[in-house]
Design a protein around this nucleic acid. Sequence first.
DNA 1: ACATCTGCCTGAGCGC
DNA 2: TGCGCTCAGGCAGATG
Length: 312
Amino acid sequence: MPELPEVETVRRGLETLVAGTRIDAVEIRRDSCVRLLSGGPAEFSAQVTGLTLSRLVRRGKFLWAELAPTAGDDAPVLALSAHLGMSGQFRVHADAPEPHRHCRARFTLAAPDASALTLDFLDQRTFGYLHVEPLVPTPDGGPGGRGTPLPLLPASVAHIGRDALDPGLDRTAATRALRRGTRGIKQVLLDQTVVSGIGNIYADEALWLARVHPERPAHALTASSARTLLEAAREVMERALAQGGTSFDALYVDVNGESGYFSRSLEAYGRAGEPCSRCGSPLRRESIGGRSTHWCARCQRRWTARRAGPGS
DNA sequence: ACATCTGCCTGAGCGC
DNA sequence: TGCGCTCAGGCAGATG
């Protein structure tokens, strides 16, 4: 599942390969991939055709291209936004191969040197989507996300919080938000309006690293453990990004390739029954809030023990 | 305002 | 072998 590090890897790939290209044609191969648009595929194609992909930007797991009238133009008029959902991928080809079975949309792009490129949006499980929409001012006045200096973001992303790797994240406010409410802390971590970019895998990893039980009520976190948790989320995603960025080949932008998953060193996710690398106790797995959740019952206590004592 | 539930989907992996 | 079942997951929008 593409979470922040995977989406950032895709953003960088697209930045390298398609920034500055012009959209010459769009072929929507599955209508529902543009489901946010009332006019459907026809309106989508009409709005983006002829525009140039200027900057590639990401906030959390949301990705967009600023669309400018001409190459080199700094003033975008629209955003072409994308969410990869669970299985979305972008692939860039120097030619126009037979579309993959899961290809939902195909863009024909013209590079500045007039050569043609093919950009495919693939999505096996179809939870991802493409959208064309206006850019609106960011609520805090800072840059929209990684990849742009402009304080603009797509309207549908305006409610999404800054992510754990964003230098513009207000860490004090985020820490406070992580300690609010009765929900289990894992659910709060997955809430993209608080801190964005964290999905099921990195939520488990961050909780493991910070030694916090996934079901601890948010309000029961100390300020110190909330800070530790936020820092843990940043650290695991930074580490994954450093790995995800390496397996990159020029004309193939891989989102959720198996290699990315296997090369990643996960401590908790998917390791039920295996020993915790800190304490050796077997890791547990349970469905919490409909999400498979992995944790170490010894290192990650449901409540912070006030002091050492029997039974806690 | 906050929390929970439902719908959107496909394909892998399972038991029978 | 093949059928039907469950599961996996993020997000928006509705409902409590």
